[in-house]
Design a protein around this nucleic acid. Structure first.
Lengths: 245, 245
DNA sequence: AATAATAACTGGTAATGACCACATGACAAC
DNA sequence: GTTGTCATGTGGTCATTACCAGTTATTATT
C-alpha cells in the first residue's frame, strides 16, 4: 500500500485516502480507541482538501473502522467492530468467514410458476414463470441446509448449472455475469419442524427442529431479484448478524 | 411541515431540506420510483448550495427513502423500502411494529458475577459484579420469550424495577435516564430445545424447539453495554430483519 | 430508416474559505 | 481548594466554483 495520494489517478482521492487509513488500522499501526490525526492534519499531510478528508473518514465510519466524537476527535473502532459492515452476505460468504468450506449439491434448476404469494412479493404478475433453483448446502462436506431460490431475470439473461458450479455462489453469478448487485433484503427467521421429505434430504429425523430463513433480496435499483427459503439443520447452524442504527 | 428553509435556525439546513423532501414522499406527492428534481433544481428552489442539497439527499438515501443513479437522476425508493432502516430495535419496539402489545414479568433484578465468558465479551475483568435482569416477555399477554440481560453500568448509574416498569423497555431506560444510546450489536440466532425449567416458564413441553437469540450491544462510544440472551417460543415468534450493504 | 456523433442533461469528485458547536485544559478569581 | 472564564483544538455545517463521468435525447450523417 502506497502511503501517498496519486493525484493523476482514475481512483478517487477520497478512496485512496480511505485505503491508506484503513491499512494503518489493519496493520495495527493504529490501535483500537486510538485518536487518529485531525482532519486538518490529514489535509496537510496528504495534500488534499478537507472535504476530501471528511469524505474518506465518512466512508470508513460507515464501514465501522472509525468513529467520531464532536469536539474530541476521530478514533479507531475497537477490534470487534472492525469487520466490514457488510450485512448482506451469501450463504457461501457466510461460511467462508467462519472458516468452513462451502459446497452444494444442485437438486434441480428449472423454470416454474411459483406460488402466487411469492410472485406477489417479487412484484410479478400471476402465472409468471421464473427460475427456481433447489440446492442442498454443505459445510465441510456435511449437509447443513436446504435451499430453494426463485430468481427474477430479464429476457436476455440466464443462469445454468455450469454458472453455479463455476462461480460457486448465486450472488457471484448475479454480480459478475449479470451485473445485478444485491443491495438490500428483508429477512425472517423462525423455527419449524422437519417434514419427512426434508428430514430425508437433511439426514435428520422427521420432526427435528430446523431454522427457517426466508429472504427477499433487492438489487441496486431496488427491484426484487430473489426470493429464497433456506431450511437449516438446527443442530449445525448458527445465524450471525451485525446490527446498527 | 413548512416547505421553506429557515435560514436563521439552529436546525441544520440539510436536515430541514431532508425533512421537506421526506414529507413529499410520506404524503404521497412523490410516488415510488418517481424521478425527483435534480440537485441543481433543488439548489435554486430552496436557495441553498449544492453540497447542502447533496447532504440532504445522502441522508435520505442512507435511510432508504431515495436512491440515485449516476447520469439519470434521483428516485423515490419503492414503498417497501421506505420504512426506516433502524436495524437495532428493542424487543418492545419489535412487537409494537407488528401491532402486538408488549409486556413483561420481571423475575429478578440483582447484581451478580456472570459467567466468565460473558464478562470477557463485555470487556470486563474477571469476578466483576454487574446487573442481571431476568424477564418473561409477553405479547398480547401470552408468553413469548425468556430474557436474561447483563447490563454494564457506571458507578453513578443504576436501574431498578420501577425504571423498567415506568419506561417499559430497557433501551428506553438506557437512553432516557442514563443517556446511553445503543448503536451497534452483534447477534446470533440458533435453535435449541427447552430444558425442563425453561419449558415451565414458557409453558411448553420440555424438549420443545426454541429460537435462541444472543446479542452483544455497544453504545455510542463503542463500549459494550449489554449482553442479552433471549429464548423465544418457536411456535410464537418470527424474527424479522432488514439487511443492507 | 438506420446509425453515429453530439449536446445537454444527470450525479460524482474536488478545492477553498468561512463560521459554528462542542470538549478540554490552562489560568485567574474567588 | 473550588469555581468560572477563556483560548484552542476538534468535528459539523454551508457557500461557491470547477470539472469529471455516466445517460439520454437530439441531430447530423449515411
Amino acid at each position: 500500500m502506497s502511503r501517498f495520494i496519486n493525484h493523476n489517478n482514475a481512483i478517487p482521492k477520497y478512496f485512496q485516502l480511505a485505503s491508506i487509513l484503513k491499512s494503518q488500522i489493519d496493520e495495527g499501526e493504529w490501535k483500537p480507541r486510538q485518536l487518529i490525526p485531525s482532519e486538518r492534519q490529514l489535509e496537510l499531510q496528504y495534500k488534499v482538501s478537507r472535504p476530501t478528508v471528511r469524505q474518506a473518514i465518512e466512508y470508513l465510519e460507515k464501514q465501522g473502522y472509525l468513529y467520531r466524537e464532536h469536539g474530541r476527535g476521530t478514533f479507531v473502532s475497537p477490534q470487534k467492530l472492525q469487520k466490514k459492515m457488510l450485512e448482506l452476505t451469501s450463504f457461501s460468504e457466510d461460511l467462508l468467514r467462519k472458516g468452513i468450506q462451502p459446497n452444494q449439491i444442485i437438486r434441480s434448476i428449472c423454470h416454474v410458476v411459483p406460488p402466487e404469494k411469492i410472485l406477489k412479493r417479487l412484484e410479478l404478475p400471476p402465472e409468471s414463470r421464473i427460475l427456481r433453483i433447489e440446492r442442498i448446502r454443505l459445510g465441510n462436506d456435511v449437509s447443513i441446509g436446504l435451499q430453494t431460490s426463485y430468481v427474477v431475470l430479464g429476457d436476455d439473461q440466464q443462469i445454468d448449472e455450469d454458472d453455479l458450479t463455476h462461480y460457486g455462489s448465486l450472488y457471484r453469478v448475479l454480480e459478475e455475469k449479470l451485473n445485478i448487485i444485491p443491495t438490500e433484503a428483508d429477512e425472517t427467521l423462525e423455527v419449524t419442524l422437519a417434514t419427512p421429505e426434508e428430514a430425508t434430504l437433511l439426514q435428520v429425523k422427521a420432526g427435528a427442529p430446523l431454522l427457517l430463513n426466508k429472504r427477499l433480496t433487492y438489487d441496486q435499483n431496488r427491484k426484487p431479484v430473489e426470493f429464497v427459503k433456506i431450511l437449516y439443520r438446527g443442530d449445525r447452524y448458527q445465524y450471525v448478524i451485525r446490527l446498527t442504527r
